[in-house]
Design a protein around this nucleic acid. Structure first.
Lengths: 121, 121
DNA sequence: GTATCATATGAGCAAATATTCATTGAACGT
DNA sequence: ACGTTCAATGAATATTTGCTCATATGATAC
């Protein structure tokens, strides 16, 4: 199929620096546990306890991942009493999650899980 | 290829299974080297040698990453003589890359990268 | 005050990853 | 046939990652 070179829009060149930032951001979506957390937060804000319950991970693991997501800037935490309610940073993050999920629907990758890279010679 | 078993065309629930597939796909964009490779291929197909030159990696490293991208289904390789010309699998992949880059432009809030983790609360 | 709940954090560890080195194989030129 | 070039592969390695355990901090209840 021909994929014509679509008009040369002013799309920023992906320099090594940009590539690193892209990788950093996408890294947030590269672990199932984080995808689950983000998917929950896309529905509505959740406290940490709610997230723990929703994704079935340990408190510490959730907290660690939330810190990562906070550092990357995808989520924010609002302290309410002794709870902390987390939400997505903004709509762009929600859109990013939607698109990631959407693309996966399309790329029906039953191909290989990232564990099997074995080939007998 | 109608294979959709779930009649849920709206936003599908992100089950652990879906989360794993999302993570798997996003994992492809979670390493700078792969982002660079994909960005090159988004412009136009490249042979492996061209990619090596474009991204400044070693032949073996590029080949390994291409295999990963092939396995995930993001790129395809076409053998032409002794070269192999790689291209993105389809437009959806191109869109995925565009969106990832676009979102990073937006998320350029000065979020720290993984290296320097600071508690900000 | 002390106890308890909710979350954050650090150390340590196992598993996954990304790269390099060395080798292999296939396609071409001579 | 031989040698050369382009790419793929396997093994080894260093780094990164995600989790658990233990502990710390902060807020509320008693």
């Amino acid at each position: 199929m021909s994929h014509g070179v679509r008009g040369r829009t002013s799309r920023s060149e992906v320099t090594p620096d940009v590539a690193e930032r892209v990788a950093d951001a996408m890294q947030a979506l590269s672990a199932p546990s984080r995808v689950l957390i983000l998917a929950q937060l896309r529905e509505r804000p959740h406290s940490v306890s709610e997230l723990i319950d929703a994704v079935g991970m340990q408190q510490s693991a959730v907290s660690h991942q939330l810190r990562l997501l906070r550092d990357i800037g995808l989520v924010v935490g609002d302290k309410r009493g002794r709870s902390v309610v987390y939400s997505l940073y903004d709509e762009h993050v929600a859109a990013l999650i939607d698109q990631a999920v959407g693309h996966v629907e399309h790329l029906r990758l039953g191909a290989v899980s990232r564990s099997s890279q074995r080939a007998a010679s």
